[in-house]
């Protein structure tokens, strides 16, 4: 039996055991939609095994072990990425994240509000403008700018109409 066949047998045995192991874990956890961890391990080991089998078949023509290590690392990270993506794409994860965000806002919201009001109180005592007052002022500037812009637009339209009119008059007087 050649080494290639032996590798293939070992690989299929390993894959089979991984599948069975995953099945057993899923049954044990009682989860129908558990993230498929084998999606991470399979490509990672499969690809690295392929790479090393190829290297051994070709002979060590390159001592570039670092390049092989980099490929192995990239494959592993990609594998992890896939597994994380799968886990984060579940409804359960979205619900957990929503709950966390909800709790975060329940805590942070009142703290922010009380901080804001105490800051404003302090600034008023010091006779200094508060953030809200500056924001209001900026909003007024923005709306003033918008009004100016509307006026500018109307003037531009008027200028356009006048120049159009001029052209017509010129054409009419000098046919």
């Amino acid at each position: 039996m050649s080494d290639g066949f032996m590798n293939q047998d070992l690989l299929s045995m390993w894959k089979r055991s991984m599948d069975q192991g995953m099945e057993a874990w899923q049954k044990l956890a009682g989860q129908q939609q558990a993230p498929d961890i084998s999606q991470f391990w399979r490509p990672m080991f499969g690809q690295s095994l392929d790479v090393w089998t190829q290297i051994l078949k070709q002979g060590m023509s390159s001592p570039d072990v670092l390049a092989h290590w980099k490929k192995f690392l990239d494959d592993s990270v990609e594998g992890w990425s896939k597994v994380l993506e799968q886990a984060m794409g579940t409804d359960g994860f979205a619900a957990a994240m929503g709950k966390f965000l909800d709790q975060y806002m329940n805590t942070v919201g009142p703290v922010r509000k009380s901080l804001q009001s105490s800051n404003e109180e302090f600034l008023r005592t010091m006779n200094l403008p508060s953030r809200k007052q500056i924001t209001d002022l900026a909003s007024q500037v923005v709306s003033l700018e918008a009004r100016l812009e509307a006026l500018e637009e109307r003037i531009e339209d008027l200028v356009d109409s006048i120049s159009l009119l001029e052209t017509f008059v010129k054409r009419a007087t000098n046919p």
């Binding site: 993506e85 984060m88 794409g89 579940t90 409804d91 994860f93 979205a94 619900a95 994240m97 929503g98 709950k99 965000l101 909800d102 806002m105 942070v108 919201g109 922010r112």
Partner: peptide, 22 residues
């Protein structure tokens, strides 16, 4: 829209609460 569709689902993500808070 992939993960964002799942994460921003109205059953889990309270957009009003977030905008009102921040």
């Amino acid at each position: 829209a992939g993960l964002f569709t799942t994460w921003l689902d109205q059953r889990h993500f309270d957009i009003d609460k977030l905008v009102d808070a921040f």
